[in-house]
């Protein structure tokens, strides 16, 4: 009697475990599935025209029936410039705001700043894009037409990256042990030196990890960019020229793309996945090492 009851319990547990293991296995396989499907769809383009022609072709004319052209260098440059610009602007803004919150301000202001950053983190990218279109683009247009430009993309993206970089930096600054600050205070070391000689070097890995996460977000960002960048496939000569990024290109053309064109778009999707996973893996590596130390 007792035996059979414990058996039925065990069976219940065993079924539950099977079910849960299935859920875990499915979750684990999803990544593989995504990579496999995107790769499978991109394969025709990787064979013909092949990756080399993505760079060597001079224009992007994938729908041309006789001689399709797959030059996406301007879009690669567009993605790179937008990402680089936004990271360069967002990093100091995020770093200095966090330093103020941590070392220079009252608790209330630090609290307010953190809440604002969290709020900004939750704003949908399409709202950033729309705001950029109706507020920033007209301002840039008044300064230097046409308005929808590389600059507009960089500014909107900067705003989106600030919370990502700042929240990661804040977390790593807070992880610096308090005793070190007390010792520094006991030695009469000034605040400026505490910030730049103690806190920032100790939190450096976490900060770089935050910047890498920001870069990953920037590379993959689509909606805000497609709305404010103007989307003309060209090498930008200045900050005021419209550009098209890889992500914007997918969003704009996937709706009507077929065969070779479609495969080329999937190949760019594969490239996006690769780039952003490299950034994220780099961030993860830095964080793990910091944990070990």
């Amino acid at each position: 009697m007792k035996q059979s009851r414990s058996n039925s319990w065990l069976n219940g547990d065993r079924w539950l475990e099977r079910l849960l293991r299935l859920a875990a296995a499915m979750s684990g396989c999803l990544t593989l599935l995504i990579v496999a499907f995107v790769f499978w769809q991109a394969l025709p383009a990787l064979r013909d025209p092949g990756v080399a022609r993505f760079v060597s072709d001079s224009v992007w004319r994938p729908t041309d029936e006789t001689a399709p052209q797959f030059g996406m260098t301007p879009m690669l440059v567009g993605s790179g410039l937008v990402t680089l610009g936004a990271v360069l602007l967002a990093t100091p803004l995020a770093l200095f705001s966090v330093i103020v919150a941590e070392f220079y301000s009252s608790r209330t202001l630090a609290w307010l700043l953190r809440r604002v950053l969290e709020l900004l983190n939750g704003v949908p990218s399409v709202v950033f894009g729309f705001w950029g279109l109706v507020v920033l683009v007209p301002l840039i247009n008044a300064w230097h037409p046409p308005g929808q430009s590389l600059l507009a993309g960089i500014l909107v993206l900067t705003l989106m990256l600030i919370p990502t970089v700042a929240l990661a930096t804040d977390a790593s600054l807070r992880a610096v042990p308090n005793e070190l600050y007390r010792s520094a205070a006991a030695l009469g070391i000034g605040r400026g030196a505490v910030v730049w000689k103690l806190a920032v070097p100790l939190a450096r890995r976490g900060m770089v990890a935050g910047v890498l996460l920001g870069a990953a977000r920037a590379v993959g960002e689509t909606m805000a960019i497609v709305i404010v960048c103007g989307n003309i496939v060209q090498m930008p000569d200045s900050l005021f020229d419209p550009v098209r990024t890889i992500t914007a290109n997918i969003a704009l053309e996937m709706g009507y793309a077929t065969s070779g064109h479609r495969a080329a778009l999937f190949a760019t999707g594969l490239l996006l996945m690769l780039t952003s996973s490299l950034f994220v893996a780099g961030a993860g590596l830095l964080r793990r090492r910091r944990g070990r130390r």
Partner: peptide, 24 residues
């Protein structure tokens, strides 16, 4: 393995999820 693969999944840009969803 599963945790590593989920970390990787979290890094996939949303437009790529769109491509995947469209095909699958």
């Amino acid at each position: 393995l599963i945790r590593r693969s989920l970390d990787l999944l979290a890094s996939v840009p949303s437009i790529v999820f769109g491509l995947f969803g469209m095909v699958v």
